[in-house]
Amino acid sequence: MNSFTYTAAPDANTAAALLTADKHAQLIAGGTNLLDLMKENVAQPAALIDINNIDGLDGITTLDNGGLRLGALAHNADTAYHPLVEQKYPLLAKAILSGASAQLRNMATNGGNMMQRTRCYYFYDTSTPCNKREPGTGCSAIGGYNRIHAILGASDSCIATFPSDMCNALAALDATINVTGPEGDRVIAFTDFHRLPGDEPQLDNILKHGELITSIDLPKNGFEKNYAYLKLRDRTSYAFALVAIATGLELQDGLIKNARIACGGLAHKPWRKPEAEDYLIDKVPIKENFEAAADIILNGAMGYKDNAFKIELAKRAIVRNCLTAANLNN
């Protein structure tokens, strides 16, 4: 195989320093995506920095503001089945459990989940051009087989989608991401973390080389009374979403007081449209209103040869999921 060095970092600062020192280095935690990419010759890191031994990054702890901190190294399965997550953030639990398989969720970490790469067929196939894998070579998915590709926020350079389920819930919940790096610590709003492809599709997110995610903070509001997660895919399990919807609602006296709708499978990042959520404020939770919100979310959607159906599918999914959330405890 391609040779690479392997170093187990004892703490976050060392990991960040090692990473900063080598621009071809990559962090490895669960490795559920990176090892695949290495075997397929899609990723060829010169150095792997193993962060699994770093203490203190795998906890799930309550915050003074009533929120919850999810350690970057806590496993997806441990997160989904954590009593506080199950009670206060069932939307997150449900989203996590919609993804991958039990084995993968046992291995995968929360930080790693955000860092997973697209599942675009061409990204994985090194015999075909792909701007995300090799900038400047072109996008094969445009004009190719693009069933699983983006209908929103795509560019002429890339129409790939971001595959995570967990991140759709984190986007809906307005989580924040704590990172550390050579220039110190910073906090990134979840919805700012992943980026659209533009003309640099090789960049999935705004993390700088040298930075590592230490934890994810969930705000106090978990929308645990009215939430729903819906994942539509080509088989009932072990397939990535064609369309996934995370919805959280707050209802009062029969009116919507707060709404969150994040969509997966549609774009290069979990897709949220605050205008749609604002539109729903003080509206009754009925189909017509959710349809109008869906239209706002999907405004500007564009389909390709194999995925145009996702525009209508996404609309129906948003409506269904919002109705499910609204009627959850009825």
Binding site: T128, G144, S237, A239
Partner: peptide
Amino acid sequence: DHRFGKFMNDSLAEYHLPVNAD
């Protein structure tokens, strides 16, 4: 993909066989 004459879903992740849940 007929531009390449190549199968694009050539893995068990993307070539969908039923899973238990199906």
